[in-house]
Amino acid sequence: MSNIISIIQGLLVIVPALISVAFVTISERKVMASMQRRVGPNAVGYYGLLQAFADALKLLLKEYVAPTQANIILFFLGPVITLIFALLGYLVIPYAPGTFISDHRLGIFFMLAVSAIATYGILLAGWSANSKYAFLGSLRSTAQLISYELILSSVLLLVILLTGSLNVITIVESQKAVSLLLPLLPLFIVFFIGSIAETNRAPFDLAEAESELVSGFMTEHSASIFVFFFLAEYASIILICILNSILFFGGYLSIIVFSIISLLDLSREDTLFHVLISIISSSPINLAVKTSILVFVFIWVRASFPRIRFDQLMSVCWLVLLPITIAYVILLPCVVSGLLINPVNISLL
């Protein structure tokens, strides 16, 4: 019985994730079409909504090409690793209070580690293909991912300083009064730039720059292993948007509904309406709306900015963003200690 419950819980997390991966691809194409005054895909299904499924089906039925000069095992293992570790991050996401698969006390560390291991998949895939475009693409991608991961982890450090716990749900619940966007606005901007670069999105998609490297580290990959890269890229976009909304927008908490409750003093009454509004104030729909808005911003950024050069990319990371975050890492503990507002970590007392 408990096994069946475990399976249902796992499927309830992973199926919406895969469905939204499919619809993020189609929404990217539709939104970019609208921004460029085109129609976009509109043939498959109503308004082209089933285009992503048609693409996936087509790619799954394509011939797989295993190049003779490649290391075949690593060639197939790289995309698999990327997909597995891009999807494993959904393990620690809280959808509502008490609604999570794993309540790990080091949940944020788990997310960081899993997104870091996905880099190895790209490195393996690019190196094992034994093609110069794939090799150069994987080199660039690895350098970019590890550089921007530094920024992500140091911003995370400051979030943890203000919330006092590595547990994801504690981080969300500690934003009940005010979401961390307000005290950490500059860091949110840095984190958002870092997360765009971490997911290899335009304008930082140097790893798969079509005009110079044919398709980057996945030049030689075809059929289902290409689908793996595709799924992993969009799954990590959604995951990092969820991470953004958890860290800076209060995750599943709705600040607006909370302020309505406190303004109208609704919390004391006990009718059905008030119970309903208190359920809505911390429910999965808030997380979903915040995540979708952030995904839209990702697509908007892609449609707006031209691609930058690789040396500019690395310079922006190491010479602009990293000094800013390091300055904050030095400043913020001093401010917090000076004002004596250190959060108490209960598990240490």
């Binding site: 819980q9 796992g10 499927l11 698999v80 597995i84 494993l88 393990l91 794993s102 793996f228």
Partner: peptide, 18 residues
């Protein structure tokens, strides 16, 4: 546990697609 199942689900999914 659910966590263990989830850790096994991802490789299974990848292997099925492959």
């Amino acid at each position: 546990t659910t966590t263990t199942f989830f850790l096994f689900l991802m490789p299974i999914l990848a292997i099925i697609l492959l």
